[in-house]
Structures are given as C-alpha cells and as structure tokens.
C-alpha cells in the first residue's frame, strides 16, 4: 500500500473548477516536487489534500484510510481531522498567528493532546533545522521578517511530526538567497518513511533536492516531466498533423 493514493480528484471554488480528475500516488520516503505556472492548481491540489478547497470530490487514501470524499461546501471542516491523521501543510502566506510569540506559534503545531506533551523535544528538532529561530523564541511573530516567518510556518508544520508534509511555494516573496536557504533547510528535514511534497514555480530551485518532479498544467498532472518543461516556451512548428 502506498502512503498517499489520490484517485479521480476534482476540486475548485464555487463555480470554478481547478482540478480535473487527477490521479497521484506517493510512496513512503519519497520527496516529490510539484512544478507549474501560477494558477494551474498546485496550491489547490495541496489544499484539497487537507480539505481546504471550496468543494471537492474523489478519493484520497492516506495509508489506506479515506480522508477525501465528496464535499460540496464547508471548506476546512474536515481539516483538523486530516491534520491529526498526520498531514501538515505549510501554506502560501504562512497563516501564522501574529499575536503569539515564535515559541507559542511553534507549540501550536503540536496541538493534539499527545504531541503537546512532547512539544519540547519536537521544538529542539525544529531548532536544529532552523537554528536562526533559536534567538527569536520570545519575540512576537508580527515583528519578524518574511524569511523568518516562513521558517516559523515550516517549523510549525513540522512540529506535528507529519507523515505527509506539504509545502506550498517555499520561495514565494523571498529574496533568492533566502529562498535557497529555506529550500536547503527543507532538504535537511528527515522524513523517515513519510513523504514530502513541495509545490514550487521555480524548477531550478528544487531540482536535485527531490526524488521526482511532477508538472502541473491546467489542473492536470504530467508525470515525470524531467527537462521537458524547459522547451515549453520554445517556438514550436507544427509539422504535419496527419497520424
């Protein structure tokens, strides 16, 4: 049994349909890159896995347990349950809690009763990956820079000790140097027999740091694009259409 099996997933917001009948299988211990242009459904796919889309249908199996299903409204109702099953999403725009301190924000990633007890140990682990957060623990998150906020967001997601770790655009809005260091830090995270999916626009940034790369185009997945995407914008000459 694979870790995550998505079959026939369609999702969208209101009348807008973003994902079209999508299949995807993620194995244990795999790091997957999800590459595509803006507005082609990368974020929607990640949000659909945690149940944050406007509506969705199709099956999402996590370790053989259904966490998807058909839902016409109620965005986010199922999310806490899915998160407690071991899926963590570091979303676009971070969604951290501006009024709480860095430490409280990190701790909030371990809100389930069991995780709460071992939050100290988990915090240590996060600080190993993002040492820069060590000095900021007492600070209010509202005062941090973009890169630090991103680290808090990623660290918070990691605090839940997820089996499936979803990262949405780790480089968004960051200076190139900082985004490189953030992605490098992601590479340091030990996923064990879990999996990590990184959605990213910049193929070069994640190349070599993931086991395979999937292309996303107009709500459909293109398996293993390799370097094919690089010709996407080259001038093409249709050379005869007869088959």
């Amino acid at each position: 049994m694979s870790l995550l099996e998505i079959k026939g997933l369609s999702a969208g917001y209101g009348p807008l349909r973003v994902l079209h009948d999508l299949d995807l299988t993620i194995e244990r211990g795999e790091r997957v890159g999800l590459v595509g242009l803006n507005g082609h459904g990368k974020s929607t796919l990640l949000q659909a896995i945690v149940g944050l889309t406007g509506w969705q249908s199709g099956s999402i199996l996590l370790d053989g347990v259904e966490i998807g299903g058909t839902r016409m409204h109620g965005s986010g109702r199922a999310t806490p349950k899915i998160v407690r099953r071991g899926v963590a999403l570091a979303p676009q725009g971070d969604a951290i809690f501006p009024g709480l301190t860095v430490q409280q924000n990190l701790d909030s990633g371990a809100f389930t009763a069991r995780a709460w007890r071992e939050r100290r140990r988990r915090r240590e682990r996060v600080l190993e990956i993002f040492p820069a957060l060590g000095q900021l623990l007492g600070q209010s998150v509202g005062t941090l820079s973009g890169g630090e906020r991103r680290m808090v967001s990623l660290g918070r997601a990691f605090m839940g000790d997820p089996r499936v770790f979803l990262v949405d655009e780790p480089s968004l809005g960051l200076a190139p140097k900082i985004s490189r260091s953030v992605v490098e830090a992601l590479g340091r995270i030990d996923i064990g027999d879990g999996a990590m999916i990184i959605a990213e626009q910049d193929l070069g940034l994640i190349q070599g740091r993931v086991d395979r790369t999937l292309g996303m185009h107009a709500g459909e997945l293109k398996q293993d694009i390799g370097d094919a995407l690089l010709v996407g914008h080259a001038q093409t000459h249709p050379h005869g259409t007869q088959g």
Binding site: D224, I225, D227, A228, V231, T236
Partner: peptide, 25 residues
Amino acid sequence: VPPRVVDDRVYPTVDEAYHAVFLRR
C-alpha cells in the same frame, strides 16, 4: 498560445513520430 510538449520522448524519424501520434489518438 504555443503548443505544449506532451512527453519527453524523442523520435529519430518522422514516421515513428506519426505512429506515436496515432497510438496516442
């Protein structure tokens, strides 16, 4: 809007490419 590349396979002759298109269809 330019055409999109369907897969990363490369065909040495045009006839093989024609047949591949046929198979896809």
